[in-house]
Every structure is written in structure tokens, then in C-alpha cells.
Design a protein around this nucleic acid. Structure first.
Lengths: 151, 151
DNA sequence: TTGCTCCTCACGTCACGTGAGGTGGC
DNA sequence: TTGCTCCTCACGTCACGTGAGGTGGC
């Protein structure tokens, strides 16, 4: 399915400037997330320049979503990402049977519980936002009425 | 319609402690909003103690909603509140005909435009949040499947 | 060599948190 | 007088913004 010519050895790694531009964030933010251990760029050039992969970018996207959309702080985001990373690790082990089945099952159940907890928070926020929008719509309708009556 | 006995002269003004507790915020935050001119408590005792009315509390609630739910900063919130206050003032003038009709109509139209702008931002956020929730739900479903298959 | 992008400090800012030290009414 | 709630500084913190001064490859 892949191209008949050889894949490039570097699967398009980006400098911090390009990475920040694509993500719509700042270079400073990327360095700060790294300082807190939330992301580590896939590589560095011998000169010390950070190189970001597509997976790195997606991870940062996730951080931004949790921050802007949900309002979590970076400490909370760290623990959410830890949970997701742990789940990924367990999935890898499902293939290379190194952990026993009960333990794996336990880990997945734990992750699931945390996911459901997160989903509940999102639902709550959704409900509040919908009420806010409905209220705005009602206000706008009243104002349109005022304008119509003034004719 | 009101009670036959005389209304109390003070319609339940609260100290900053009670006000903060009811709002689920901090005393410091209330003082900070006042410092920025976002709210001014209805009164002060001769001793200098702040007194908050029900209207004051609702205004603070609005500030918190715009902050937590929508993610606006306090400068943005100031301008949103200014718009809402201006609309309130125009409504008052609709009764005591002191401004001419064209000018009033202009002001309402301006307020309406800003309201619609705000509503669009809320809709965008709602869409993103819904997609986030759906994604979480899909992940949870996959995890439940994994657990079921393990039986 | 000149530009450009990157690097690491390090101080500034916003929205408060958290005492420090003091006043005021039951 | 003792508690309690309130007051005004003022320094600390989180999540970056914003230069300062320097390195490194086309």
C-alpha cells in the first residue's frame, strides 16, 4: 500500500517555530510543557534544536483542548495524560503477553473509571454551556422584539 | 401583591464572607473584581465593611460564568458587562423618554450585534465540546469491548 | 559575512492565594 | 476582654509573554 520508493528516514520532524505555528500556540508554551514533563519532542539535532513529530503535535493538541475547552490546569492535565499513556502501555502488552490477564484487566478497568469520570465533567460543562446559549438566545429575541415594536 | 407589613429597610445585604461562600468563590477574588471596576458592592458600613446585595451576587455569578465557562479574561468580561449595562440603561430610557427614538434604536442594534457575536463564540465552543465528548464516549466503548472480549 | 531560526536565562503579567498586622461590632 | 469577621498591604504562584544575549546551519 505504501509508495514503491523507500520511505524517507525522517518522517517530517518540525522545528519549534513550525510546530507552534501549526498548533496555534507559542514556542514559549511548548518549552514550558516540556519543562513540566508533559511532552518531550521526539528528537534534538546535534546543535540542540528540538524536533517535533506528528505524534508530538497531537499530544500538544490534546493538552490545549484539556486546557482551553475544559479548563484544567497543567497538573490535572498531567494526570489525565498519565492515565491515557498507561492505557496505551497496557494495550501494547495485550500483544506481547508479559503481564498476566487479571492485572491487565484491572488496569483497563481503572482507566475506564477515570475516563467515565472525565466524561461526566464534560457532560456537566456541556449542560451549563447549553443553558448559557439558550439564555443568550432568549435575550437576543427580546431585543429583536423591541426593535420590531419600534417600527 | 407585596406583604401587608412594611418591607425591611435593608433588603438582606451580605458581608464579603457570606457573599463569597454563596458564590463558591474567594473573598480575594471579590476584592480583585472590585479593584478592576467590574463590581462595586451596594454599600459599606461606617466601619468600611462591604455589603453585597442580591443583584451584586448575580453580577458576580455572570463574571464567573464568562470566566470559567467561556474562558474570557477580565478585560474581555469588562467590555461584555459594559455592553449589558448600556442595554439596561437604554431600557430605562424607553420609559422616561429622554433620548430620541433613533438614537435608542441605534444603541439596541449595537448591543444586539455584540450579543450575536457572543452567541456565535458559544456555539463554536459547544460544537468543540460535543465532539470532545463523543470522542471520549467512543474510547470508553472500545475499552468496554476489550473487557468484554477478555471474558 | 549576513539572515534566519533556534537556544537558555530571567524579569514581567494576569488572576488570584496566602499570610501579616490591625480595626470594629456582638 | 475574648472571638469573629472584616480591612489593607504585600509577597508568592501558575501559565505563560517578552526581551537579552548567544549559538548554529543554509
Amino acid at each position: 500500500m505504501t509508495s514503491p520508493v523507500a520511505d524517507p528516514p525522517q518522517p517530517t520532524l518540525l522545528g519549534i517555530g513550525e510546530a507552534a505555528a501549526r498548533l496555534g500556540t507559542s514556542e514559549r508554551a511548548l518549552r514550558y510543557y516540556q519543562q513540566l514533563g508533559l511532552i518531550t519532542p521526539s528528537g534534538r539535532t546535534p546543535g540542540g534544536i528540538r524536533r517535533y513529530s506528528e505524534d508530538d503535535l497531537e499530544r500538544v493538541s490534546r493538552i490545549r483542548e484539556l486546557q482551553e475547552l475544559l479548563g484544567f490546569n497543567l497538573e490535572e492535565i498531567r494526570s489525565i495524560l498519565e492515565n491515557e499513556d498507561r492505557l496505551q502501555a497496557v494495550r501494547a502488552e495485550y500483544r506481547s503477553e508479559t503481564t498476566d490477564a487479571n492485572r491487565r484487566r484491572e488496569l483497563v478497568q481503572e482507566s475506564l473509571a477515570l475516563q467515565i469520570d472525565l466524561k461526566d465533567k464534560v457532560e456537566t460543562k456541556l449542560d451549563r454551556l447549553q443553558r448559557f446559549r439558550d439564555d443568550l438566545e432568549a435575550r437576543a429575541e427580546r431585543m429583536r422584539q423591541v426593535l420590531a415594536d419600534a417600527d
